[in-house]
Simulated assay, not measured.
Amino acid sequence: MTARGRKVLAVDLDEVSADTVAKRLRRYEADHGEALSRAAIHGRQIRDAVPPGRRVQVEACLDEPGFSRDVPVMADARRVLRDLAERFEIVFATSAMDHPVSLHDRYLWLQESFPFVPDRGYVFCGSKQFVHADYLIDDNPRNLEVFPGRGLLFDAHHNVAEDRFPRLSSWRDVHRYFA
């Protein structure tokens, strides 16, 4: 709870508020001249869905300056978070230390994509165990396992078999959950 008496809702970036998969799939096609579909990555990591000789390059794009700068916003995320910001303190919590080169790009992306959340609400961390919030919406079970509050799993291609956390399949589901 904040000083204003509102609960805190922490939101992850990649594959939750930022459609990083869409950008990575476009990048794969541009780099290799062939499409990689969402169906092809269903149930696994992107690196595990490509030929072994391409795995390093597929992951390396995440560490390129500028890659995180123009990732699309997930469908309905802006609208739902703007609505929830009237009742919750919204913070963005990202495991940015996984790709520290992206810190500046992620900061600018947040400023442009969610201008109603002040930059004091950005948490760039290595582990989400240090995020003090009432809720965390994240696509990675690893982050929810260590989060001290209520973890909510956002549906993603790589977490389809996960069943330990309440699952939200879209931002419309997020809106209904907090209605």
Rank of each mutant, 00 (worst) to 15 (best):
T2E: 14
R6L: 15
V8N: 00
L9I: 13
L9M: 10
L9E: 01
L9G: 07
A10L: 09
L13D: 00
S17G: 03
D19S: 01
V21N: 01
V21T: 15
A22N: 01
K23P: 01
R24L: 14
R24M: 14
R26P: 00
Y28M: 03
Y28G: 03
A30V: 01
L36Q: 08
H42V: 02
H42R: 15
R47V: 15
D48V: 09
D48C: 07
P51M: 13
P51I: 13
G53M: 06
V58R: 14
V58H: 09
L62Y: 15
L62V: 06
P65T: 10
G66A: 08
G66F: 12
D70V: 13
V71Y: 09
V71L: 15
P72A: 08
P72W: 10
M74I: 05
M74T: 13
A75D: 15
R79C: 03
V80M: 06
L81G: 06
R82N: 04
R87A: 12
R87S: 14
F88M: 05
I90Y: 01
F92V: 15
M97T: 02
P100V: 06
S102D: 04
Y107C: 08
W109A: 09
W109Q: 05
P115D: 09
P118W: 01
D119P: 13
R120D: 11
R120Q: 08
G121Q: 10
Y122K: 07
F124R: 01
F124I: 04
C125D: 11
G126M: 08
G126E: 12
G126T: 06
K128G: 02
V131Y: 00
V131Q: 02
H132P: 00
A133G: 08
Y135T: 02
N140S: 14
P141M: 05
R142D: 10
N143W: 04
P148E: 11
G149A: 06
R150M: 09
L152C: 07
D155P: 00
D155T: 11
H158N: 11
H158F: 14
E162D: 12
L168R: 05
S170I: 13
W171E: 01
Y177D: 10
F178A: 10
F178N: 07
